[in-house]
Structures are given as C-alpha cells and as structure tokens.
Design a protein around this nucleic acid. Sequence first.
DNA 1: TTGATAATGAAAACCATTTTCAATAAGGAG
DNA 2: CTCCTTATTGAAAATGGTTTTCATTATCAA
Lengths: 162, 162
Amino acid sequence: MPRMDGCGPGGPMGWRGRFKGCGYRMTTGREAILDILTVSEKHLSAEDIYRKVTEKYPGVGLTSVYRTLEILSNMGIVYKFDFGDGRARYELAEGSKKPDHHHHLVCTKCKRVIDYTEFIDEEVELLKKTEKGLSKRYNFAINNHLIQFYGLCGKCKAESPK
Amino acid sequence: MPRMDGCGPGGPMGWRGRFKGCGYRMTTGREAILDILTVSEKHLSAEDIYRKVTEKYPGVGLTSVYRTLEILSNMGIVYKFDFGDGRARYELAEGSKKPDHHHHLVCTKCKRVIDYTEFIDEEVELLKKTEKGLSKRYNFAINNHLIQFYGLCGKCKAESPK
DNA sequence: TTGATAATGAAAACCATTTTCAATAAGGAG
DNA sequence: CTCCTTATTGAAAATGGTTTTCATTATCAA
C-alpha cells in the first residue's frame, strides 16, 4: 500500500508525475477518470464518472472509480462536495489560471447547482485573511475552504406554495 | 400530511407556535429533541440525539428523531451539516442574539470540528452583499450560507508523516 | 368525549460507499 | 526483454446511515 499522505495539493508536476512521486501506479482506469474530469462539466457523481468512463473503457469498475477519486481527493487534485442529495460530487481542482475559481449556489429543493465567479475575488481575499487568523488561533494547517449559498432557484421558487 | 413548505426560517413565535402554525402537532418526542438541541453541545449526529433523548424518554425511536430533524431542518430551526465523517450533524439555528453565529473549522483527518466566531462579522457582512448580488443575478431566493475551513488540527498535524 | 388523521416505533428496505479476496498488471531490477 | 514484487483491479458481499412501510397510538379541534 503506497503512502496516502505527505502528498498534499500544489506542486508543478503533472498528474502522472505527482502519482509516481507518491508511489502510485498510473493505470488505464485512472487516466480515463482524470480525462473525464478534465473534459466534463462540473460536479459529477461517482456514478456519473463511472458511466462516462465505461463508455470508452468498459472494463473499469465502479469500485475503482471510488478508489481513484479518494486518492485524487486526498492529493488535492479533486474536490469532493456534498450538495445534500445523498451522493458526493467531484470536480477537478482549478489549475493555475485564476478564472477557474468558483463557489456554489445550491437549490435546496431540486438540488440544482450553479457555479458563480462573481464576488469571488473579494471572498477569497477575506478568506485568506481569516485563514491566517484561524491557523494561528487554533493551530490548524488550513488547506481548503468551502463557501456555499442555499436557497430556491427561480423555478422552484415559482412552484413553491405561496 | 401537513404542509412542509412555506414555513421558512425567522418569525417571532416560539417553536410550539411555529409548529402549530405549520400544521404539525407537538409531541413528547419532538419536545424532547428540541430540549436536547437547546441544551447540548454543538453538532450532534442523529444517533447522538437519539441516545440523549432516550435517556429521559426511552419510548422515542430513532426513526422519529430523523423525522423530526428533517422537519426542523426544513423549517430553518435546525441546521444540518456534513463534516465528511459519513453522518449528518445537526445544531440549533442561532437565536436572536448575535454572538451565537459561528462557522466551522474541520480537521480532515480526525474530523474534529471547532466553532469559531472570530472574523464572523466581516464574513457575514461580505456574505450579505454577495447574497444580494447572487439573488438578483441568478434569480435565487437565498436563505442560508455555509462557510467551512478544512485542514489538519494541531494533533493530527504533529502525527502526520513529515 | 369523540373522530379524523398526524405521528409513532419496529422492522424491513434502500442505496451510496467500503471491504474482501483472488486474479491481474505496472514498472523497477537485472 | 523478462521476471518478480506488489499495487491495482473487478465482482460480489458487507456496511451503515437514512428512509419506507405499515399497523398502532396519540394529538387536538370540534
């Protein structure tokens, strides 16, 4: 069993390099999963990814998808989200380019998720400051944050009982 | 089946009044659950609540705890959280007093959760602004937000492989 | 007090995720 | 290129938090 820690986020190496560096082997399945995540729309479930992967590589099992996603998540290559619909959602952590960074707006009724990038800069700036304060105050090594807004989307709002 | 919607958060009535107003009946079990939530430490799991409730009222079942928590959550009386340990956590929404408002700092290894109130005012101020912008931009009726920081607590940081 | 029906507990079902385990394949050594 | 160690795999079974089912009980308006 290769080590799962000490391989935190960040670093200039490509995925393959990062994998190797952490003692993992690069397999067809893992490559396929990373490809899907790179190309696809955001916040896919494990099952979503499984379906897309097997379109091209029918041999890959759902179990492996889960296993790979856990590794990627631990390495900080993938973020894991919970939008309240009973299954985890995954998306590739943003690359080096800034415009990728976004937060989520979740409809608590139909579970639709909207990515937004507006106001992000201010949010991130404040978070950075908070992060620094909290790290010191509570002796935490913070390496991620989560911001989500919850409410009713236009459609669900209209359908809702007055 | 009483209506579960249109009974959003806020409002000056006590719980009993809110319940009645929404067509729910007040029972021993529900009262006990609310009591526990009021008195206890933060972020309890359904099972935690179940155990505490049955200490005093052995008749109450786990199923009812889940059912009640869902209602309370839908009414905005209780917040439901996911800290990544496979079970939902619940805490009473803060009362009218400000100092209650807090966000969470989660250790991704041992899952320990720390409530913090520092920086909250600035965070909330910014969130309010963002909320307004997002509501208009995406036609969402936003009624809640979530901020969490993830990292390693001091203990887990020390134990981690260099 | 009474009657309509909301709420309940126990047990079974559900279902996303994990674990088990024997078979396979990645990749460094030679 | 071949061998060998062992990480990885898929299938099936297990897990475990949460939901459903359903017959019984309790709430509360009239």
